[in-house]
Simulated scan of single mutants.
Amino acid sequence: MIVDAIQLSNTEFEGKNNTYLLRGDEIALIDTGVSTPQTENALRTGLADHGLTVTDLDHIFLTHLHEDHIGLAGTLQRESGATVHAHSADAPLIARKSEAVDQFRQTQHKFFDRWGMPTTARRELLDFFKHHDKLRGEPADLTTHTDGDVITVGNKQLTVVHTPGHTAGHIGYAFEDKDGTALFAGDALLPHYTPNVGGADVRVSHPLDSYLTTLSRIQDADFERAYPGHRHLITDPAARAQEIIDHHHERSQRVIEVLNKYTAADAWTVSAELFGDLSGVHILHGPGEAYAHLHHLTKNGVLTEDDGAYATKSDTKHHLKDLFNEIE
Rank of each mutant, 00 (worst) to 15 (best):
G71V: 09
A73S: 13
L22H: 01
T152K: 14
L135R: 05
A48V: 08
S9N: 09
V202Y: 01
T119G: 00
N155W: 05
Y291F: 15
I244S: 01
P191K: 08
A140H: 02
L135S: 07
L62G: 11
F111Y: 15
L93P: 04
G180E: 06
T152E: 12
N325C: 12
H59C: 03
A182M: 12
A188D: 10
D127A: 10
T304E: 14
D220A: 15
A89Y: 06
Y193V: 14
R123S: 03
P191F: 03
D113A: 09
T316W: 13
D4S: 10
F275W: 10
K16E: 10
Q103Y: 12
T143R: 11
E224H: 08
A188Y: 03
K321E: 10
L93T: 06
P191I: 08
D222Y: 03
S279C: 06
H293D: 14
S98H: 09
A100C: 04
E67F: 15
K321C: 05
H87S: 09
D209I: 07
G165W: 04
D322T: 14
I218A: 14
I283Q: 01
N196H: 14
Q253H: 15
D306L: 11
T144S: 04
V302F: 14
G24C: 05
G286L: 06
T32H: 02
A239M: 10
R122K: 10
G186H: 13
A168G: 08
H132I: 06
H66C: 01
D49A: 15
V54L: 04
K97W: 00
A42D: 09
K261I: 00
N260H: 12
T159C: 00
I94F: 08
E273W: 07
L320S: 05
T119Y: 05
D322F: 10
R114V: 05
G198D: 06
L22E: 01
T235W: 00
T143K: 09
I327Q: 04
L8K: 00
F129I: 08
K299Q: 14
D307L: 12
H109K: 12
N300G: 02
P191L: 05
P118V: 06
T119S: 02
K97I: 14
D149T: 07
N17A: 07
A174C: 12
T263E: 14
V34S: 02
F275A: 07
H64P: 06
A95Y: 00
H85Y: 15
Y211K: 12
R105S: 07
G199F: 10
A168I: 14
K16L: 10
Q38I: 13
A89D: 11
T146R: 12
V281W: 09
A185V: 01
G229R: 05
N41K: 09
A86I: 13
S216P: 03
H166W: 03
L303W: 08
G308V: 05
E79N: 08
I2E: 08
L278G: 04
F111N: 02
A82K: 03
E67K: 13
E305A: 14
K16F: 10
A185P: 00
S80V: 07
